[in-house]
């Protein structure tokens, strides 16, 4: 990688729109992804995530706006983009009668590796995604999670500098999710720019450095994201003695919310206030065993933005584009 490429954003999206007939799948998307970072692409079902990724993956032509992947335009020079970009689709297709190893070798050959390179790369990837035992079985016998791993391996065949992952964790068991997270972090550590779409926000919280919120085909502006992050949100607090906790909360004048076996929810505005509340509770002698945000950062922002979009005062809502994900 040249030094100029290292500093330029690996993915640049500016004002991109794409509609299918009268369905406006993506209306106005703008964001950048830096090399060596993991960016989460977050949005509800039908918000245009897959359409946006298809445009980044050189498969769909945007109606408006510009896209640069590793400095190349996917419409003008798809070959250069394909050389630099790996794409893991949300649809799990595999050549059913072809073995896992052969599928990866063929993909390598289609990326113009020599037969020896393709063989070596296939073996390395099989090990990387943990499909050793199934390597010589036809891919139709794979389970959903195993196909998911094969799909990820296929996206990595040509060692791309930009990785687009569309719902990579769906169908994976918890152990495989942890492995996926570690793999994605390792790739980012090697300088790969990763864009991950998902609506399972908890797992993205742990792997993403940045987030792009997509709602009804438009990316939320940085200010809106900032505003919603600063808002009052629920923190969950759990003590050894719930009765002592509620008494202490009452003393502090904090209205405790619903209580359950996981603890009590209390409204807190920002992390500074959270730290102060914790200090006062501990100071009051309550034995706190658990204290933290009730929902992850991404989820909180996501839900808040979704609420904001539904509120006509916050955002002049356009005609609904439900079902426009494709």
């Amino acid at each position: 990688m040249t030094s100029t490429a290292a500093f330029a954003p690996a993915i640049e999206v500016e004002g991109v729109a794409r509609s299918f007939g009268d369905v406006h799948a993506v209306r106005d998307a703008s964001f950048t992804v830096q090399p060596g970072s993991v960016t989460a692409l977050i949005g509800p079902n039908g918000s245009g995530k897959t359409t946006l990724l298809l445009m980044l993956a050189t498969l769909l032509r945007p109606d408006a706006g510009t896209i640069r992947i590793a400095g190349h335009d996917p419409v003008a020079d798809p070959r250069a983009v394909r050389q630099a970009m790996g794409w893991m689709p949300d649809v799990l297709g595999s050549w059913g009668t072809v073995t896992v190893r052969r599928a990866l070798e063929v993909t390598g050959r289609l990326y113009e590796l020599t037969p020896e390179q393709a063989r070596a790369r296939a073996s390395a990837l099989i090990e990387l995604v943990g499909l050793q035992e199934l390597a010589d079985r036809p891919s139709r016998v794979l389970s959903r999670g195993q196909k998911q791993r094969l799909s990820l391996a296929r996206a990595l065949v040509h060692e791309p500098r930009v990785l687009l992952l569309d719902e990579p964790a769906s169908g994976l068991d918890p152990a495989a999710r942890v492995e996926l997270r570690e793999l994605v972090r390792r790739l980012a550590g090697d300088g790969v720019a990763v864009l991950v779409s998902s609506h399972v926000l908890a797992e993205l919280d742990e792997m993403a450095d940045a987030a792009v919120y997509l709602d009804r085909g438009a990316t939320a502006s940085a200010e809106r994201v900032e505003r919603s992050r600063a808002q009052v949100r629920d923190w969950r607090v759990r003590a050894l003695d719930p009765a002592a906790l509620s008494a202490a909360l009452a003393d502090l004048g904090i209205a405790g919310g619903a209580s359950d076996h996981l603890g009590t929810l209390i409204p807190v505005a920002g992390e500074a206030e959270a730290a102060a509340v914790l200090a006062r509770l501990v100071g009051a002698g309550v034995a706190i065993v658990d204290f933290g945000p009730a929902v992850g950062d991404l989820e909180h922002t996501f839900l808040d933005l979704a609420r904001g979009a539904a509120d006509p005062a916050a955002a002049p809502a356009p005609a609904a584009t439900e079902g426009g994900e494709r």
Binding site: L54, T58, R82, Q83, M85, G93, S94, Y111, R154
Partner: peptide, 13 residues
Amino acid sequence: EAGTLATTQVTLA
């Protein structure tokens, strides 16, 4: 329909 066309199209083929 089987989802194998697009994965071939994103390669250099």
